[in-house]
Computed example of a mutant assay.
Amino acid sequence: MSEQQPIEQGVLELAQRVFGLAREGVTEELAAYVDAGVPANLTNEKGDTLLILAAYHGHPETVGALLDRGADHGRANDRGQTALAAAVFKQSADTVRRLLAAGADPDAGQPSARATAQFFDLPEMGALLAQQQPG
Rank of each mutant, 00 (worst) to 15 (best):
E8F: 08
G47L: 07
L14N: 00
A87T: 13
G70R: 10
A130K: 04
P123V: 00
I7L: 15
S112F: 05
G103P: 07
P106N: 09
A36D: 11
A102N: 06
K46M: 14
Q5E: 15
A31N: 04
L21E: 08
S112T: 02
D107W: 10
Q110N: 11
V11G: 03
S2D: 12
M125P: 00
P39N: 02
D78I: 10
D35G: 09
Y56G: 15
Q5F: 14
R17S: 14
V88N: 03
L30C: 03
Q16G: 15
A31I: 10
A55T: 06
G64A: 09
A104Q: 08
A85G: 14
P6A: 02
G47R: 01
L42S: 08
H73Y: 14
E45N: 11
A32W: 05
G74I: 05
L99D: 03
F120Y: 15
G37S: 03
E24V: 12
P111T: 05
D78F: 08
V34W: 04
Q5G: 11
F89C: 13
Q9L: 09
E29Q: 08
G58S: 11
R23S: 13
L21Y: 05
V34A: 06
D94N: 11
D121W: 07
A54F: 10
G58W: 10
R17D: 11
A71N: 09
A22Y: 07
L51A: 06
N41C: 02
R97E: 11
R98H: 03
A55Q: 04
A86L: 10
A113E: 03
